[in-house]
Amino acid sequence: MNKTVNQKAWFLVLPVFLLVAFSAVIPLMTVINYSVQDTFGNNVFSWVGLDWFEEIIHSQRMHESLGRQAMLTTIILLIEVPFGIFIALNMPKKGFWASFCLVVIALPLLIPWNVVGTIWQIFGRKDIGLLGHTLASMGIEYNYAQDVLSAWITIVVMDVWHWTSLIVLLCYAGLQSIPDAYYQAAKIDQASRWSVFRYIELPKMSGVLLIAILLRFMDSFMIYSEPFVLTGGGPGNSTTFLSIDLVNMALGQFDLGPASAYSLMYFLVVLLVSWVFFTVMTSIDKKGAV
């Protein structure tokens, strides 16, 4: 078969190319320019070379934020992924209740990040919040503004409340695509519930599950609005995650140079993890297609 070669279709990509250039490439170039200079404002810059990178690599502050961030992301993934799968497995497969569950579960996803922060900030208050008041009346010490453990628990529960739905919806879609014949075959073989999950449902879900994990990893690794509204990074620095720390440095202290070096290293980590996930996902797709 002779294929016609026509490369003109590339021009259709031009608008997106321009959009990405202005929204991502030019800002990124500017950040790289900032990262090798120092400024005291007024658009006056002086060359410092790689000093900021060296300073940030050795900075205690960055190490601590990175540690907190890694811990938060790990906790969130460890809770949300199994919990999301569990809910998806137990949802009704068809009928009125299936649609009802889908709508209810999708609701938290529609709420903007900063509103979620505000909801939980009020919800946890001792004077007017339902959660804070109930816990206080039960005699449980809970104060997310002063107690580190309370703050962490609130942030984790808030994120689980907000984002488990995403994993549920993706897994549910994966489960729905499994033909009934698989389950019938398993029944004939008298497979246990666990075997059905392990050898039928999990392999069929693995593609969407990886996408879910990637999305949750990226989102939680770049989390900003929710903890910022809820705790503002406190008490002390206990919930200052990478992006909160970065914004404090760039906009709070106006240290544009170090903040740029910081954000570039942050970006590299995100880029590396995304690449790994993307590669794994596409190679799984290819294996599935064979």
């Binding site: 170039m29 790289i32 320019n33 900032y34 090798v36 060359w47």
Partner: peptide, 15 residues
Amino acid sequence: LSWMAWTKETATFFI
């Protein structure tokens, strides 16, 4: 383009 704070070194890098 002064707001982008160009330097010779970074310009060379991008080129």
